[in-house]
Computed example of a mutant assay.
Amino acid sequence: MSLRLCVDGDRWRQHLLHTVSARPGIVPVAKGNGYGFGIGSLARRCEWLTTQSEQTGTGIDVLALGTYLELAQAADRFSGDLQVLTPWRPLGAALDVSETLSNRVIHTVSRTEDVRDLTERKPDARFVLEQLTSMRRHGMTRRELVEAARVLDDRRLAGLVGVSMHLPLNTASHVGEVERLLNDVVSTGLPTRTVFVSHLTIGELTRLRSSFPDFVIRPRVGTDLWLGDRTALSVTATVLDVHPLERGEAFGYRGRSMPKSGHLLIVSGGTAHGIGLEAPSGDQSLRSRAATIARSGMDVVGLVRSPFAIDGKQRLFAEPPHMQASMLFLPSGARVPGVGEDIEVRVRFTATTFDRVDIS
């Protein structure tokens, strides 16, 4: 009786090996909910990928995490270095990294003042300097990188591991922007030619490596690695109860009336799992806007499409999801699944917490 992620283990493992082979120097990303698998599970999988280096041609020596609080979930399951993507700041969990773990942590530094502060607190700290990309979330401009290079030179610090770039999504090509940023690295005089970069295609990586043969370009990959073969992944929910209802009968927390006769299905999976919680969409197309308007109109009359599907057709929520279960409306004439049957669920993996993850 659970919301379950089922993984075709053979197919998934082959996809992981292929992805690692195609991207030499790959740095897997495991953050947040671990793309639905959990950070600990992905850390163990990275350790396994390291044992497959003869087959893939590349070992996994660095795992990227989102925050300092996530270090504990990966440290005992992966033996390599741990890169924290959230920039270091002189506060909170960034100051609580244990001495036994600190030599494995690669910090991300995105402000010149933090270069000074981090290295004053810990002269042997290892770190990457994040460059400001067109995403404009965190990072240093070329002028700030020059100042950071001066600090490193004056203090004779040797902890610089490389530079970091976090590129935006949905652009035609990143090559032009990355070329400009790499030229900035050269002009600043930074003592590194290693670059950690997110969201590059294999074709872009090949082109950049050809244009900048003296650089070591290390792609950080999350979604394409763990979720790149969706045919290996399926999500199911258990039918917990089935109730026939006539039109006008009341149901649910709010005593709504059934709009027509049919069945009320109670299935596992609710807001505690992320069901019914929707992140803002970045799609600004006319079609997307029209779909948003259509959904709003359905919501006004109490009809909202759910992610639960029966016989290939997505069914409507009867009311907003509960914490650990959801109520679905199944109209008369549709096949009624039995209690205990598993039905399909279409979810956003990065926003869903599963009761079970079963890898065959």
Rank of each mutant, 00 (worst) to 15 (best):
G176P: 06
G176Y: 13
G176H: 15
E177G: 01
E177L: 00
E177Q: 04
V178M: 05
V178A: 08
V178T: 07
V178H: 05
E179M: 07
E179Q: 08
E179F: 00
R180F: 10
R180E: 15
R180C: 08
L181N: 00
L181A: 03
L181E: 04
L181D: 03
L181H: 01
L182S: 01
L182I: 11
N183D: 14
N183R: 15
N183S: 14
N183Q: 14
N183W: 10
D184C: 04
D184Q: 09
V185F: 07
V185G: 08
V186L: 11
S187P: 01
S187T: 13
S187C: 10
S187Q: 12
T188E: 05
T188D: 07
T188H: 07
G189R: 06
G189S: 06
G189E: 10
L190W: 11
L190T: 07
L190N: 09
L190E: 09
P191H: 11
P191L: 02
P191G: 06
P191M: 03
P191I: 02
T192R: 03
T192G: 00
T192W: 04
T192K: 05
R193Q: 11
R193S: 10
R193L: 02
R193W: 01
T194S: 09
T194Q: 09
T194R: 13
T194G: 05
V195F: 04
V195L: 12
V195M: 05
V195G: 05
V195I: 13
F196Q: 09
F196D: 11
F196R: 12
F196V: 09
V197I: 11
V197L: 00
V197H: 00
S198G: 09
S198A: 14
H199I: 13
H199D: 15
H199A: 15
L200R: 02
L200D: 03
L200M: 06
T201M: 06
T201L: 07
T201S: 15
I202Q: 12
G203V: 04
E204Q: 06
E204L: 01
L205I: 09
L205A: 06
L205M: 13
L205E: 13
T206H: 08
T206C: 03
T206R: 06
T206Q: 08
T206S: 10
R207V: 15
R207N: 13
R207E: 15
R207C: 12
R207L: 15
R207I: 14
L208Q: 04
L208S: 04
L208G: 04
R209Y: 06
R209N: 07
R209T: 02
R209D: 00
R209W: 05
S210K: 00
S210T: 11
S210M: 02
S210Q: 09
S211V: 02
S211M: 08
S211F: 09
F212S: 06
F212G: 04
P213L: 03
P213V: 04
P213S: 09
D214W: 00
D214E: 14
F215T: 14
F215L: 10
F215D: 15
V216Q: 14
V216M: 12
V216H: 12
V216N: 13
I217G: 06
I217W: 09
I217Q: 08
R218G: 02
R218I: 05
R218P: 07
P219D: 04
P219G: 07
P219C: 10
R220A: 05
G222F: 03
G222V: 08
G222S: 08
G222K: 01
G222M: 07
T223W: 05
D224T: 14
L225G: 12
L225A: 13
